[in-house]
C-alpha cells in the first residue's frame, strides 16, 4: 500500500487544481453546441411559449420568456365556440373566420402528406427495384434524367404546371397537389431506394425465388421488410417535403377547400395581425403531425436489420 497521501502529493508539486490543464477544445465545443442549440431551438421554443400567452402578454415589452399567466385559450378556440363568442365583435370576426379554417387546412395537409408518402413508397419501390436489379438499355440515362427534372427551378415550371392542372381540373384540389408533389419527390425516392435495394444481398432474393416465391412475392415478403429502414426514410422525406411545401401550394390552391397549413399560416400572419397567441397556436398545430411521425418512426428505423442475413 502506498504511503503517499493526496495532501503530500499536493504539497510537493503544488495544488492539484493548478496542475490540471484547461480542456480548451472541449470548452469551445460546448459553447458552440449551446449556441447552435439556441439558434435552432430558440425560435421554435418562442412559438410554443407564445401559444400559451394571452394577446396582451405576447405583445408585452420587454418580452416574457415564460408566460406569467399561462392560458389554453389559443387552443380552446378550435373546439370551444364560447372562447370566440366572448370576444369583442371586431376581434371575434377575424379570429373566428381564421380559426375556422385551421382544421380544414390541417386535414388537407395530412391527406396530402400521407398520400404523397404512401404513393412514394408504393410507386418508388416498384420503380426502384428494376433499376437496382436489372440492366436494360437506357437505364443510366433514365436515372440521370429523373434527377435532371429536379434541376429546373420551380419558378420556371409553375406556369406550365398551372396551365396543365387547370386543364385537367386539378386546381384547388387536394389530388392536384398530391400529383404535383409526386413529381418532385419521386425522383429522389427512386434514387434513394435504388441505392438501398442494391445493398441488399442478391442471394436473399434468389433464396426467396427458390423458396417458391414469384418476383412480386419475393419483393413483398423478403426485400421490402429488409429494406424497411430505407422505405421509412423515403416515406418521412416525402411526407416532410409535402408538409412544408409553400410555393406550389400557394399558387395551386386559391380557396380554403384545398389550402394546406403552410399557406394558411402565411395568411394568418396578415389576417390575424397582432393575434400572436392564435397565430402561434396554429403554427404549433402545424408542427405536431410531422413531429409525432418522426418520433414514431425513429423507433422503427432499427439499425442493423440486415445483420445476420449473410456471412459475417
Amino acid at each position: 500500500m502506498s504511503a503517499t497521501t493526496p495532501s503530500m502529493r499536493a504539497s510537493s508539486k503544488g495544488p492539484l487544481l493548478q496542475r490540471l490543464p484547461i480542456p480548451w477544445k472541449q470548452v469551445f465545443i460546448y459553447i458552440a453546441a449551446i449556441f447552435t442549440f439556441i439558434y435552432l431551438v430558440g425560435p421554435f421554443s418562442w412559438i410554443v411559449i407564445s401559444s400559451f400567452m394571452t394577446r396582451e402578454e405576447a405583445m408585452s415589452m420587454p418580452p416574457h420568456w415564460l408566460p406569467e399567466e399561462p392560458t389554453l385559450i389559443n387552443y380552446q378556440a378550435y373546439y370551444n365556440p364560447d372562447v370566440i363568442n366572448s370576444m369583442l365583435e371586431e376581434r371575434r370576426l377575424t379570429v373566428g373566420a381564421v380559426v375556422g379554417e385551421v382544421p380544414l387546412a390541417l386535414r388537407n395537409s395530412i391527406v396530402v402528406a400521407f398520400s404523397v408518402a404512401f404513393l412514394n413508397i408504393v410507386i418508388g419501390s416498384l420503380s426502384a427495384y428494376p433499376f437496382a436489379r436489372t440492366r436494360f438499355r437506357g437505364r443510366t440515362t433514365l436515372l440521370v434524367f429523373y434527377l435532371l427534372t429536379r434541376m429546373v427551378p420551380a419558378l420556371a415550371l409553375i406556369l406550365p404546371v398551372y396551365l396543365v392542372l387547370r386543364r385537367i381540373g386539378a386546381l384547388n384540389q387536394v389530388w392536384g397537389l398530391i400529383l404535383m408533389y409526386l413529381t418532385f419527390t419521386l425522383p429522389y425516392t427512386v434514387w434513394i431506394l435504388k441505392n438501398y435495394f442494391q445493398t441488399i444481398p442478391r442471394d436473399l432474393e434468389d433464396a426467396a425465388r427458390v423458396d417458391r416465391c414469384n418476383w412480386l412475392q419475393a419483393m413483398i415478403r423478403v426485400i421490402l421488410p429488409v429494406a424497411l429502414p430505407g422505405i421509412v426514410a423515403v416515406g418521412i422525406f416525402s411526407f416532410m417535403a409535402s408538409w412544408g411545401e409553400f410555393f406550389y401550394a400557394m399558387i395551386l390552391t386559391q380557396t380554403p377547400q384545398a389550402r394546406t397549413m403552410p399557406v394558411l399560416v402565411a395568411f394568418l400572419s396578415n389576417e390575424l395581425g397582432t393575434e400572436y397567441g392564435f397565430l402561434t397556436s396554429a403554427a404549433v398545430l402545424a408542427v405536431i403531425p410531422p413531429l409525432v411521425l418522426a418520433l414514431f418512426f425513429q423507433r422503427m428505423i432499427i439499425s442493423g436489420i440486415g445483420a445476420g442475413a449473410v456471412k459475417g
Partner: peptide
C-alpha cells in the same frame, strides 16, 4: 443452400 446462407434477417 447459398454460400452466404441468405437467411431472411427479419
Amino acid at each position: 443452400v447459398f454460400q452466404s446462407y441468405a437467411l431472411y434477417p427479419h
